[in-house]
Design a protein around this nucleic acid. Sequence first.
DNA 1: CACAGCTCCTGAATGC
DNA 2: TGCATTCAGGAGCTGT
Length: 280
Amino acid sequence: MPELPEVETVRLGLERWCLGKKIIGVEVLHPRATNPRSLGALDYVQGAKIENIGRRGKFLWFELDRPLALVAHLGMSGQFRVHSIKSADEKHLRTRFTISHNILARKRQELRFIDQRTFGWLAISEFSGEVPELVSGIARDIFDPNFERVEVIAKFRTKKTEIKRALLDQNLMSGVGNIYADESLWRAKIHPESLACGLSSRKINSLLNAATSVMSQALVEGGTSFDSLYTNVTGESGYSEQSLSAYGREGEPCPRCGRQIRRIRFANRSSHFCPNCQRK
DNA sequence: CACAGCTCCTGAATGC
DNA sequence: TGCATTCAGGAGCTGT
């Protein structure tokens, strides 16, 4: 599922492909692809020039030569793909953007938003400051130059809830989803059910370091597996399965100590951890 | 206000 | 074989 590194990979792909181009047409093929909080129909972007592609956590947006931005969230299965206008529509194609093309380009292509599970969405949102209004409640992610590490650590320590819940809370720190939460906790040797308020600043700091390194590595791997011809602007994890130490490895030996990785369920999610390395 | 839990969705995997 | 159930989870919403 797309978390920060995957969304950043998508952002880079979009940046390479559509910066400076003009959106000629918008075709909405599924009503759920438009977020109900959208200020209006996606048609708003018709005729707009794409000036920048922004991201905070898992939220993406297209900055345009007009006051509102087009915001996107990939949800569980959302993808942006650049395809030839001739290629058949995907089964889960939700929105099609016709883009102005260079007369010299060999193939005419279009941008498609595809989403099997329809947890992803697009929206028109006010944009005047740093991030669109729809994204304004989302905390800065750990790669944001203005990320306030000391303050975030202090905030974690006020939370009377399990550390994993806190790590997934996009209002505390954005970008981390279930996979990188499990991987970060494994690296930092923290039990997912440890109370956030019971952890030392040093421990939470090491968790943030773990999250940074896990996601940086995923970004590098996702970036390298990324096709130079942008046909691969997908939301799929670029993180190879071999790189995962805990997530999805129930019953397999912990790469650090050999004990079997356990899986528990809470907060409507699976949590994978090593019962030996990660103690409450 | 803080926090827990429910809900949306589809397709793959599993159970009987 | 076929039908029913379970599982996957981001984030907003509701309830306590």
